[in-house]
């Protein structure tokens, strides 16, 4: 398969995600989260937080709209029917709390080809409304060859 190496380094416009209390609760229930900071508003406030605290992997929710940009970019031309999510990394900074506005930028950090398969790596960086970094995500994808 052929891959377009020229898109390495490509960045996309930042997107803002407004974190909602009930979205945190919905996500927390879906992953079986049991921490009361993520589920019980009184407990979160008693612990000094303004609102419910997002579980760390809630990053997939606020980073998803940004990471969709390269996935759907015709310049990269990813064939979804052959796409496999190979690996994922998150590094976390400040906690995310309901009411936060999270700004995420995404960059194509690597494109390669090995054994007939295409490899695409995207990096997402998210900051909160105070400019503090909350999460850096690395999304590793494989597009299987014919």
């Amino acid at each position: 398969m052929s891959v377009n190496h020229e898109a390495i380094g490509k960045r996309y416009d930042p997107l803002v995600y407004a974190v909602g209390r009930e979205k945190i609760r919905e996500y927390a229930h879906a992953i079986g989260e049991r921490d009361e900071l993520c589920l019980d508003l009184d407990a979160a406030r008693a612990a000094g937080f303004a609102d419910l605290v997002a579980p760390p992997t809630f990053a997939v929710v606020y980073q998803a709209p940004s990471v969709a940009l390269p996935y759907f970019d015709p310049e990269l031309g990813i064939d979804f029917t052959r796409l496999v999510h190979g690996g994922q990394e998150f590094a976390w900074g400040a906690l995310v709390v309901a009411g936060d506005e999270i700004t995420t930028t995404v960059e194509v950090t690597d494109i390669g080809e090995r054994a007939g398969n295409g490899f695409y790596t995207f990096q997402t960086r998210s900051t909160n409304q105070d400019g503090a970094e909350v999460c850096v995500g690395t999304w590793m994808n494989i597009v299987r060859g014919q």
Binding site: G32, P56, T57, G87, E89
Partner: peptide
């Protein structure tokens, strides 16, 4: 997320997990 939950439940909440990398 289940990998993350195993760590945060043992270590003391959502602020305890600083990095997680997985291979599917």
């Amino acid at each position: 997320a289940q990998c993350a939950r195993a760590q945060t439940e043992a270590a003391g909440g959502p602020q305890s997990l600083k990095r997680l990398a997985v291979t599917f």
